[in-house]
């Protein structure tokens, strides 16, 4: 009886009792969720266009952030470093298309998946070689990212919002909206969706798969850079950061591998869910459930809705 009470009644009583704490928890979960969503977005983009599950997405995030910070450390002004990093991500996309995707066309998916492991280790090695293995701190000030926090007064208390988190949410929102527009309205975006639907047919109407792949990997690289900047600002820029990318897996399972809105909603559910779980139910288990709760949620989804919340229904005419 006591246990049931502790699970089903006390946490909610607590939430109602102090709405400011609840709001604070939801906000923190929301920001984490937005960043998960950005990582998941990188996976979705690449999976849709090239059918590759890109294991290297997490490392791309670290590599991008590391390049940015490393260049700045070497004396390059922040804005120039940002532009150079974007250029590096483009070169990376071209390189991956030439050296990995093109030679492996028509190979089974698992081979391409393994190839992305190779990319992961290559990027780790390259990053350490060029910029060293020590954790670095993100150059938030130089990028004009705001510091400090603002207090929001709500009935029952106040919520503290980090300005950096607000900026992260805003940038994520702009990127997602921009990508959605790009996908729906432009010629290249249409071609991307066409490739995602049917490679062969896309080839037959003259869409160049190589060009599309470069664009997609580059886009994923830019998304990775944005994620890397904000994750890097919350902790340090180091290769340990890539475990964050693993959190994108439950997000993907939740949202569906092929859906951009799914990545966003899935990210938010995981982000908010794990914060609420940790704060209100965590003490029952001695805390620390944040690190695995997301996987449990994902497992439940796999059991009942394997295509995810928004996974593309396979259109089949009978």
């Amino acid at each position: 009886m006591d246990l049931l009470r502790a699970i089903f009644i006390d946490p909610f009583a607590q939430m109602i009792g102090s709405p400011d704490l609840l709001a604070q928890t939801i906000w923190e979960g929301f920001v984490g969720g937005v960043l998960y969503a950005l990582i998941a977005l990188g996976f979705v983009l690449i999976f849709k266009a090239s059918g590759v599950f890109n294991f290297a997405q997490g490392i791309m995030m670290v590599f991008a952030a590391l390049t940015l910070v490393g260049l700045h450390e070497k004396g390059v002004p922040a804005w120039v470093a940002l532009i150079l990093t974007i250029a590096v991500m483009y070169a990376l996309a071209v390189g991956i298309e030439r050296l990995v995707l093109r030679p492996l066309v028509n190979q089974p998916d698992i081979i391409l998946f393994m190839a992305t492991f190779g990319i992961t280790y290559f990027l780790i090695g390259l990053g350490e070689l060029v910029f060293g293995g020590n954790p670095k701190s993100m150059i938030t000030k130089e990028l004009f990212l705001p510091g400090g926090s603002i207090d929001l007064h709500i009935p029952g208390g106040r919520v503290q919002l980090q300005k950096l988190d607000i900026a992260a949410a805003a940038v994520a929102l702009i990127m997602v909206a921009g990508l959605a527009l790009f996908f729906q309205k432009t010629r290249i975006g249409r071609a991307l969706r066409a490739v995602a639907d049917d490679h062969q047919a896309a080839l037959s109407v003259g869409i160049s798969l190589n060009q599309i792949w470069v664009i997609v990997w580059f886009t994923a690289g830019v998304v990775a850079l944005a994620t890397g900047i904000f994750w890097g600002a919350r902790s340090d820029v180091s290769f340990a950061l890539q475990v964050v990318a693993l959190k994108a897996l439950p997000v993907l399972i939740l949202g569906g591998l092929t859906s951009v809105p799914g990545a966003i909603v899935g990210g938010l559910i995981i982000g908010i869910g794990e914060k609420l779980g940790e704060f209100y139910w965590g003490p029952l288990l001695g805390g620390g459930i944040e690190s695995w709760l997301a996987y449990i949620i994902a497992l439940a989804f796999l059991l009942f809705r394997p295509q995810g919340l928004f996974g593309e229904k396979i259109i089949e005419r009978i």
Binding site: R190, R193, A194, A196, D197, D198, Q200, A201, A202, E312
Partner: peptide, 10 residues
């Protein structure tokens, strides 16, 4: 192509 191959989701 044979079998039409329209982009189903477009």
């Amino acid at each position: 192509m044979e079998g039409r191959h329209c982009f189903g989701h477009l």
